[in-house]
Structures are given as C-alpha cells and as structure tokens.
Design a protein around this nucleic acid. Structure first.
Lengths: 195, 195
DNA sequence: CCTTTACCCTAACAAACGTTAGGTAGATTT
DNA sequence: AAATCTACCTAACGTTTGTTAGGGTAAAGG
C-alpha cells in the first residue's frame, strides 16, 4: 500500500467536477458530462466515487474546512478587534481565491445536497457566521463600531466578501490580499471621505 | 374579448413557479411539481405557457423591469450624489422585498435561461450595474468618495444589497426601507465610529 | 508465477424529464 | 342553437438521468 500519489485519479475526478459544477451548476452537469471531461465512460466514475451526491459533498466539505482553518487561528489570536476583523476578511478572501471553482460550488450548490448532509452543511455555515458575528459584537461592546445589529452587520460583511467569487480573476490586477484589505476598508470606514 | 381578470390562471401559474423555483431551484423543479402545486396535471400547464424556459424568462424579465423602473426616476433626479445613491439603494431593496421569490429566481437561476435569452439577460444586468456605477463615479469626481475603483465599489454595494433576499422576512422587525437605509449607512460611512 | 489492485469497458436498468396529441366538459359569444 | 373559447384530462412520445452488473486488461507486489 503506497502513500497516495500527488494526482491520484479520485482527485482528478473531483477537480473536474468542481469546474463543471461551478460553471453549469450541479444539476445541469450530468455524470456523462463529467466523464467526457475526463475522457472516460460515465459508469467508470463509480470506481472512484460512490455517487454524484458524494461528489458534491466532498467538494463542499473540503471548502468548508479551508474556511474554518483559515480564520480560526486569527480568531483565537490577541489582535485588536479592528485588526482581527480585517485579517479574517483577508483570510476568507484568500480561501476563495485559492479555491475558486470549489467556492462557487460551495456558495451556490449546497442546497442540492441530499439529507442529512444538507442539514449538517447548514449547521456548519451557521457556526462559521457565528465566529464573524462574535468579533462584530466585540466591536460593539468596545464601542468601536456603530451598533447596527450584529446579524445585520455580519451578513453584510459576508455578502460583500462572498460575492467576489463571481468576478475575481486569478490574473487580475488585484491580489486576493489587496481585495480583502480594500473590502475591509470600505466596510469599516465607508465610501465617504471623513474630511 | 375581456380585459384580463385580476388573477387569471397564467398569473397563478407564474406565481406558483416563482415559489418553487425560488425554493428548490429551476432545474430541481419539474413541471409535475409545479402542476401538483396548482392541483392539475403537468400537460395542462401548456394551456397557459409554451415552455418551462418561457416561464423562467417571464419571471426574470418582469423582475428586471421592476428594478429598472424603481431606480430610473431617482437616477434622473437632481438629488445630490450621497442622497441619490442612498435612495437608489432603498428603492432596490424595496423591489427585492416586494418580489421576494421572483428576486431569488432572478439572482440565482438566470444561468439556466436558454439562449438567446441568457445573453440578453446578461446585457440588462450589466446595464443596471452601469447605472449604479455612474453614480459612484460621480462621487469620485466630486471628491466625495474615496476612489476605491468604481467597479469594485459598485459590486460591493450590489452584493450587500442582493444578499438580503436570503434572509429578509416580510414579517421581520425591519421594513425594507429601514434595511436599505441601514445598508446605505454602513456602505457610505462604515462600521467604525468616527469619534 | 500468481494474486491483487487500479482502472476502465459495454450493456442495460428503472425512473424521471419536458412536451405533444387528441379529446371532453362547461362557459361564453354569436 | 351553433360555434367558439377556456381549462383541464389521459396517454404516450423520445430522451436523459444516476446507477448497477459483470467483465477485461495491465501493472504492481508477493
């Protein structure tokens, strides 16, 4: 038994699925489409995965893990609230950029997961949002932020952040880190000049 | 030939489709699902509409018209830039609230339109974004806004705005107008207190 | 040399899909 | 009274769907 090669076949299947699901959507992508992209027959896919639903789960789950792993150390650090929130926004942005097709699947196709995975997904998503929300709340408590309602402010931050996956281009002029910082700046200090 | 009744059957079909497409997605909703919701047989739907694709188009097109009609008079008014942008944000929010299921279809399912409708849709969406962008540019030119790049700022505004359709509840404590105003405030002046 | 493992094939399945054909009952119009 | 229109029906169509069954071939490991 050998340690898995760096590009084993299963990984190739998942990556091809990420690209297709991201582009056309989960339901609009047939197993035959996926097979064609890999230049094999649809039935052969089942050597590597057990179902189409598992494929969607593998993509979404790995993506979820990356988001948690990226922000957790920052959340637990002792940065001040403003710096912490900015760093979390940048880290989140970098995960999106690093996993662009998978992120699109993660954001748009999760509703097509079969139960019980769908409910588990919803729970993880709530947990993730709760981490951001607790930092926003800290900002309220420190009288650093206007109290616009934790949930409202948090959802606005994540909305602006997650929408980037629709237009971010790896070869664009802005690096993910720069996008994240600019986004944080807009959200924290607004578009209007103070003086 | 009589003037159409206020709830003619075609309208009922469209409204049932909005609810289902919004909830489960366009592809995950079968004509038989839609028929069941209306308590008739799938084949009978074709008395009222010509195809499933036309149904999606009707929903998305009407929604697009509502957005344009809501912001156009404001755009052409002589409000100052800050007030104009705020009013456009509020108006956009009110369209979402007034057409909640249709908005969800509009935002999430347009990619499943068949050509040439899909390309036409993409064009209208670009046109709409361009209206917001020109107001943002005006803010730059007047030295009112920080110049964070027109496209970037505009997409951030629309992202925060459009995401509301995922959590807005008609019976929630905030009215659409209040949500729009709060959103505008966050985007224009930021989360951080100035003093 | 034999066995296992990895990987792929053809053929086929039952189910679900959007849609059409052809017909009927009741109301409305002429 | 006859003709038309509206709204629905049953039955069926051809296609596509995810998936399984069963088999083959070449490389790797003992």
């Amino acid at each position: 038994m050998e340690v898995k090669g760096k590009t084993d076949r299963k990984t190739q299947v998942i990556e091809a699925a990420e690209a297709l699901f991201s582009d056309k959507g989960f339901l609009a992508t047939s197993m035959r489409d996926l097979a064609e992209a890999l230049e094999l027959e649809a039935a052969s896919l089942y050597t590597h995965i057990s179902s189409k639903d598992e494929l969607l789960f593998l993509i979404a789950d790995r993506c979820a893990n990356e988001f948690f792993e990226a922000i957790n150390p920052i959340y637990k650090s002792n940065l001040n609230t403003e710096a912490k929130l900015t760093a979390m926004i940048v880290a989140h942005m970098e995960v999106i950029a690093r996993n662009l097709p998978a992120s699109a699947v993660f954001f748009n196709e999760w509703k097509h997961l079969a139960e019980p995975r769908k409910s588990e997904y919803a729970q993880r998503r709530d947990d993730y949002e709760a981490i951001f929300r607790s930092v926003v709340r800290k900002g309220f408590e420190e009288n650093l932020f206007y109290n616009y309602d934790e949930g409202f402010s948090t959802r606005t931050i994540l909305a602006a952040l997650n929408w980037t996956h629709t237009w971010y281009k790896p070869d664009g002029e802005l690096k993910p880190e720069e996008i994240g910082e600019r986004l944080a700046k807009i959200l924290l200090t607004g578009l209007i000049r103070n003086m």
